[in-house]
Structure formats: C-alpha cells, structure tokens
Amino acid sequence: MKLRILAAAVALAALGAGAVVAADEPQVVRQDMMKKVGGAMGALAGIAKGEKPYDAEIVKASLTTMSEVAKAFPDQFPAGSETGHETEASPKIWETMDDFKAKAAKFGTDADTVLATLPADQAAVGAALGVIGPNCAGCHEVYRVKK
C-alpha cells in the first residue's frame, strides 16, 4: 500500500515537473505574453467600439500589461529557441535582433506615452488604439511566420 502511494506520488511529481518545464520554455512564455497583449487589446477595443462601458481601471491595467510585456518580450528569444512548441517566430528575429528589439521598445514607449495621460473616455481609447495597434502588425509582418 505504501509503495503504491509512493509510486503515485512519484508519478504526480513527474507530471508536475513536466508541466513546469513546458511552461518555462521560452517559446511557450512568449506565446503566453502575446496572448496577454491580445487580451489587453481586446479589452481596449471593446471600450473603443462601445461594446463595454469605459472603465479607467481596465484601461490602465491593459496598458500596463502592454508596457510590461513589451519590455520583457525580446529577452524570450535565447539561442536554441528558434524552433519547437509550434513557434511562429521568424528566423529574421535572430538575424536582425537589434531591429527586433527596437520594434519592441517602440511598442513599450507608445504604451507608456498613452499610459502617462490615461485616455479618459471612449473616444480617447479609440485614438490610443490608433497609436498602439500598428505596432502589432508592424512587427508581426516581419518577424512572425503565420502557418
């Protein structure tokens, strides 16, 4: 009986360790980061389109998410993470890392600028999206391979 519990515990620990390893892989980390930004964009767009009521806290939190991700994002591309985990990262990231970092930095700066004078109503959120939104396509078109 004890042996069975022990075996089960070992199995569970192994499963848990496996999950932790997968979540730590840079490919997975950066995918999760992009999903967070997507969620933040969605929250802002919902307000801009009038589908959701204006909420200063949500606007602030969304912009903060973008700013934080933009700063940490370029560090998630270490050597060895070029392939695997269904990554859509283009090899160009590693070829022109400086430009890639500059694009991420501009995204972060744009988010910070908007954050500094928090958009105060629906129209202002729409205008802010007009500033921030093009960063997504601008970087994806060069550095993301859609499969």
Partner: peptide
Amino acid sequence: ETGFTPDFDSVGGAMV
C-alpha cells in the same frame, strides 16, 4: 478593416 482577429492576433502571411 483593421487586420485584427477576434482574439486580437494580427493578420498574417499572404493575407496581410
């Protein structure tokens, strides 16, 4: 119009 999917991924590949 905007190039954003409902999940706010941006349009990719030849569709850009």
